[in-house]
């Protein structure tokens, strides 16, 4: 198990390095950072000054090395647009995004797992069909439009909830529903197919033959097995939620990391952009490693050798 964890961690580090090289290169080849920083009205002398002042005249790989070494120490430079150290901006915005992410994944699990279980226990009934439709719509609905739709219904028409902002816990309700809905379909489908598979397994027949009551058979014996891949996928979905947070936070004006990313992109604020991309990738990598570890932990066949 320990060796497995170490190897998984090693892989994650390699992936992180490659992702940062890739995104760094991508941004640098997309635009000359000096021009981006100087703005549209700058003269060519201004641009040249900025290029030298910020070291953009050096080879790209040296710039990357310097940036990366600083970045792993938590120093992402200063944001030209906000005029603040990027790490301060990020720390400031993180709690909002974390709250939103945690609420959303809880929401998604809270709906996805019960729906999937019911659909599997009562296949081809109305419950199965409802869960199927929820899955199809949840997968197809664009989250920025769903945000606006909920806003129109609950904030504008019914006036139950605030339209936007991050002042109170109520501001999180609609963004949580939007982000959570994105994660429901995969969780629900996996629960359903997992339950259907396990319910036809030999050990479930054994459980019935032992004379166990249905709730023990379904929830102790079947769900425990069906849930293993769901836990892993929930972890991956948590990472995807962060990606969705860019759109949703922008729509609801929630001042989290996603909003920060959007603002920095609109202002071509390269240091902030790079930092946010690195942070998001780190979450993706971290959560997918976590997914593998959870998978191993919940499956005794992997955990106990």
């Amino acid at each position: 198990m320990l060796i497995y964890l170490l190897r998984r961690f090693g892989l994650a580090c390699w992936v992180a390095l490659c992702v940062s090289i890739l995104t760094f290169a991508l941004l640098h080849f997309s635009i000359d950072p000096a021009i981006a920083m100087a703005g549209e009205d700058a003269t060519s002398e201004d641009i040249e000054l900025i290029r030298i002042a910020y070291g953009y005249d050096r080879p790209v790989w040296i710039q990357f090395g310097e940036w990366f070494l600083r970045a792993i120490q938590g120093d992402f430079g200063v944001s030209p647009y906000f005029g603040l150290p990027v790490q301060d901006l990020i720390l400031d915005r993180m709690p909002v995004t974390f709250t939103l992410g945690a609420l959303s994944i809880v929401f998604a699990l809270g709906f996805g797992i019960p729906l999937g279980v019911l659909a599997a226990i009562y296949p081809n009934t109305w419950i199965d069909r409802v869960s199927l439709s929820v899955g199809v719509f949840g997968q197809a609905i664009p989250n920025f439009w769903f945000s606006l739709l909920l806003m129109i219904i609950f904030a504008v028409q019914l006036q139950w909830l605030p339209v936007s902002g991050s002042d109170s816990i109520w501001s999180y309700v609609l963004p949580t529903i939007v982000l959570g809905t994105n994660a429901i379909p995969p969780i629900m489908r996996l629960t359903r197919t997992g339950m259907l598979d396990t319910l036809s397994a030999d050990y479930i027949r054994t459980a019935w033959a032992k004379g166990l009551p249905p709730h023990i058979v379904f929830f102790k014996h079947a769900l425990r097995n069906a849930i293993i891949p769901v836990v892993a996928v929930a972890s991956i979905q948590a990472a995807h939620l962060l990606g969705g947070s860019i759109v949703v936070e922008s729509v609801f004006a929630l001042h989290g990391l996603g909003m920060l990313a959007y603002e920095s992109i609109l202002r071509s604020d390269i240091p902030t952009m790079q930092a946010v991309i690195l942070i998001f990738s780190a979450f993706f990598i971290g959560f997918s490693a976590l997914s593998d570890v959870l998978n191993a932990y919940f499956d005794p066949r992997i955990r106990v050798q």
């Binding site: 892989l11 992936v15 992180a16 992702v19 890739l22 990606g243 860019i246 990313a261 990738s281 993706f284």
Partner: peptide, 23 residues
């Protein structure tokens, strides 16, 4: 497969936004 893993770790929307905005 390593390339795929790297690709999966790139936040798609964020990178798309950034690159499209810059270019």
């Amino acid at each position: 497969m390593f390339l795929v893993t790297v690709k999966l770790s790139v936040p798609t929307i964020l990178v798309a936004l950034a690159v499209v905005q810059l270019v």
